[in-house]
Amino acid sequence: MHNQVDIETPEGIRFSLQLAGPSRRLLAWTIDTFMVLAILEMLSGLLGIFNIISADLTTALALIAGFILFFGYNMVLEWVWRGKTLGKWLMGIQVMDIEGLHLHFNQLVVRNLLRVIDILPALYLVGGISMIFSPASQRLGDRAANTIVVVTRKPPETDVSRILPDKFNSLRAYPHLEARLRQRLESEELRIIIQALLRRNKLDADKRVALYEELATHCRSLAPFPDEVTRTLSDEQFLRNVVDSIYNQKQHLA
């Protein structure tokens, strides 16, 4: 299952949107369902006033109100609130056009009408299966409406203080090589290094050594630090120094 979609602007710049997973979407739907039930309960109380005129009219109005609420709740809120419902807002997700453009009301109508198929046979099984096989994690309604559901809440920044070296960072003696490393190392590569160091104790010893060796070799190839520096450092220590060199620069900027 993919976790992001990349959109390329006509200027050739790529930006990415993080896709919401099935569990987060299911929770949002659960919240919205409870919300609909609560509104219905309130409405049926209010509609009781019509009992003075006719019990028949009250029942008719309650039936119609329930139906409108079932189909209209998502449509209206997603339109007015730009892709969000209460459940989606609480779960930090929202509906968006698959090409990053604004949502049309038509798209919201189509995605919400097709919910009647996605929800089958229970608990969004059809929609869930569709999401698993969709590159943009779309249920059937999303596919027909060209919409995606993305995460709006930013993930917390990784706390790297736990993996920074306690000793002197010998790489600092070579600022030009640190600068080269900062420019050549890609974000995804840095993320892998940080995760590998953070999960140190969860990794099997042999595999950990092999992984650190591979990562350190890659970093050395990007910025060839002199042998007298790297020889005295273990691969793990070298990687910690790399993270320190990059983040230390960032802290300095901040």
Partner: peptide, 24 residues
């Protein structure tokens, strides 16, 4: 590489401005 949060901030800014420029 280390500018993850700044990249995310600009990513978010561009993604929100994009539909106003290219409409729809």
């Amino acid at each position: 590489a280390a500018e993850i949060s700044l990249t995310a901030k600009l990513d978010s800014l561009v993604s929100r401005a994009y539909p106003y420029v290219y409409g729809g």
